[in-house]
Amino acid sequence: METNNNKENPQENQDLIDAYLLGNLEAKELAEFNEKMNLSTNFKQKVEEQKTMMESAEEINIKDLLEDFHKEIEDLSYSNWMSRGRLALAASVLILIAVSSWAIFFHENSAERVFAENFKPDPGLPTTMGTTANYNFYFGMVNYKRKNYTDAIASWEPLYAANPTNDTLVYFLGVANLANNNPRQAEKYLLLAQQNSESVFIEEAKHYLALTLLRKNNISEAKAILSKSQSPSNIALLKALEDL
């Protein structure tokens, strides 16, 4: 027997199915719901469709979450590795790689090649939203992590206009612009990002600013930016630039 759903409010129906899918129905409501599914194949089909939609919405988000978890594992492995007194070894390996690279590629060394070898966009920040999280910043980060840099920049630029001293924002605007093949804009933001000595992004900002300058074929300024940096990635990049 099919029940007549024509007079039902579709929004209320959607809410009812959500309550069922999310396990929010009381025992009596659940019994009524199950009875309705048994009586109406049409209703049962709607429940199945909404369930698949919910599963899809969950799955797309758990994928983002797992990427965040993985990034943390990689960061932890890196910091553990570096904390074991292997900095000297790392430096030796980097120098060896640089020397070997020079030996192999000396005939085709170019700013373009060094840029391509060293540019990898920052993986971004976790996108689990807190209750007070900035909605537009969050939007931008989701797009950034999906490599939709144009959309990310569009979300972040109005925030920058309202708060031009936010170091996180200027840093990610810089990296997003560089990833989006806009070194001119990237330079503007990364210059700001690396001026803030309190910023947790200072070393990364220098790294991407140097790459931006390299992209503009301004090698001497790129070297000057890296010359005072102590981070292993910046030391390695400086070495690569010195070989140009």
Binding site: T52, S56, A57, I60, N61, M129, Y135, Y138, V142
Partner: peptide, 30 residues
């Protein structure tokens, strides 16, 4: 079902940011 979920995930990616956030907050973050 996997195929269907993948298709719907593609559609979700094409929704506006606001809708994507709403669905995330409601279904994923509960």
């Amino acid at each position: 079902k996997n195929h269907k979920i993948k298709l719907i995930m593609d559609c979700i990616s094409n929704l506006g940011d606001r809708c994507q956030t709403l669905l995330k907050l409601f279904y994923f973050e509960r």
